[in-house]
Design a protein around this nucleic acid. Structure first.
Length: 414
RNA sequence: CGGGGUAUGGCGCAGUUGGUAGCGCGCAUCGUUCGGGACGAUGAGGCCGCCGGUUCGAGUCCGGCUACCCCGACCA
């Protein structure tokens, strides 16, 4: 893509009402636009990153037998009344609205109920189980207070997977598979080393749920991480009882701030019983389906990566989710034809090999501005083509993360 | 929802005892520059968050509202 055609631009200063580092950088670099508090639109660069993250997660969910769907955002109150989750006293973050005929409707904040109702049409026997269903869908949560830019918003894209199994053992086995898949996702997006599987409060069905917590001072959660890194415990359940259960001592842990980038939860039969999702076993006897849910907030994950990887010059994207593979910076104020030709041919050559290139072909900009933009946008590899490189017969390659510079002939790139 | 703060051009900000709204960045045109956010000249761009009040006169004083940010509470 030619940068001269990109409708977004960078800016030197962040809007003053944005304090979060990740949001400031994403706004300055033109990845997102703020619609209102806690609500952000994805612009071309941001959407590219989001799509890469979605791709990584989709692959991981498919690998654990997930089947992708897309459920609706508009929700039927009757369904939620059946599980006692419509009343504001029980769920206080609904966005509720009215249809023209005065009937109520809600904007989905999660999808256990609608999916469970759908599954009732298809699950009747143990032979139909297990099943695993996921989606990427916008969630709406009417938070009392949003904060930290994209880290805690009112509208956000979420991957949520729901497991439908016959019994607790089958759920446990899948739960572990999901946890392993999540681990791979965080590794792939570059925050694996900082992300800890964390014991958190559970429900009636299981004592704990598990969160994936990424260590950073920008986090709003407090967790206790074992000094040997073997496990972590959310502050909300860091009690003597729990420590005894886990066979640990308080001294083994250190307190840390973190961002919750994922949550897996054993639902048990809470929703299947309330909504009548049952299956017949081999003897024909009926049982409620045992469920689990597994969520990842895409925008929050994206912002977390920015928060952690950025340096003083701007964003530093891990290769797997960068908006482009290469940022080709053409320094060509005089319109030198050899330089132009070299740049255009290089783009062609890289794209033919399946690489994505942002070609900064803008004229009338100083080298300094182009470099500053490149650093801010944070594409992993910067290639400079200029009269200088043309004269040397080599291209200048700079790694955004390490700052290392090397010189290569065109054929050796990519 | 409790507490604190902010609101002036696209962005960042100044605006004194109330007296015709200013600076930097960005933008447009021209010229000079040309490898780390260059320089000069000229120019465009404002319901000063909204509503009401005081006053001859309000960006400025008073009242109300809204939005945004921060802290706290909340976050199956």
């Amino acid at each position: 893509m030619r940068q001269s055609q990109l409708f977004t631009k960078t800016r030197k200063e962040a809007p003053k009402d944005e304090v979060s580092k990740s949001a400031q950088l994403l706004l300055r670099a033109g990845f997102v636009a703020k619609e209102m508090a806690g609500v952000y639109s994805m612009l071309p660069l941001g959407l590219r990153v989001q799509n890469k993250i979605v791709g990584i997660i989709r692959q991981a969910m498919d690998a654990i037998d997930g089947q992708e769907v897309s459920l609706t955002a508009l929700q039927d109150p009757a369904l939620w009344k059946a599980t006692d989750r419509w009343d504001d006293r029980n769920v206080d973050n609904w966005f509720k609205t009215k249809l023209k005929n005065e009937a109520e409707a809600g904007l989905s904040f999660t999808h256990e109920e609608p999916l469970t109702r759908i599954m009732k049409q298809y699950i009747g026997s143990y032979r139909d189980l297990p099943k695993f269903v996921y989606q990427f869908q916008t969630k709406f949560r009417n938070e009392l207070r949003v904060k930290s830019g994209l880290l805690r918003g009112r509208e956000f894209l979420m991957k949520d997977l729901y497991s439908f199994t016959t019994n607790a053992a089958e759920l446990d086995a899948y739960y572990d598979r999901a946890a392993a898949a999540y681990k791979k996702i965080y590794d792939a997006v570059g925050i694996g080393k900082l992300t800890h599987l964390t014991f958190a409060s559970g429900g009636v069905f299981s004592k704990f749920s598990h969160e994936f917590q990424t260590l950073t001072a920008a986090g709003e959660d407090t967790i206790y991480v074992a000094k040997d890194k073997s496990l972590a415990i959310n502050k909300e359940v860091f009690t003597e009882d729990v420590l005894r259960d886990l066979g640990r001592k308080k001294d083994d842990f250190e307190e840390a701030k973190s961002i919750e980038v994922g949550n897996i939860f054993k639902l048990g039969t809470r929703y299947s019983e309330a909504l009548g999702l049952t299956y017949a076993d081999e003897s024909g006897k009926s049982h409620p389906v045992v469920m689990g849910c597994y969520g990842i907030g895409i925008g929050r994950l994206l912002a977390t990566v920015v928060e952690i990887m950025a340096d003083e010059k701007g964003i530093v994207w891990p290769a797997a989710i960068a908006p482009f593979d290469f940022h080709l910076v053409e320094l060509n104020p005089t319109g030198n034809q050899t330089v132009k030709k070299t740049a255009n041919e290089l783009v062609q050559q890289l794209e033919q090999r399946g690489k994505e290139v942002l070609h900064d072909d803008r004229v009338d900009l100083s080298a300094g501005q182009k470099f500053a933009d490149s650093d801010l946008i944070g594409i992993p590899t910067r290639i400079v083509v200029s009269e200088k490189t043309a004269a040397a017969g080599k291209l200048e390659i700079k790694d955004r993360s390490s700052g290392e510079v090397r010189y290569e002939t065109a054929g050796k790139i990519g």
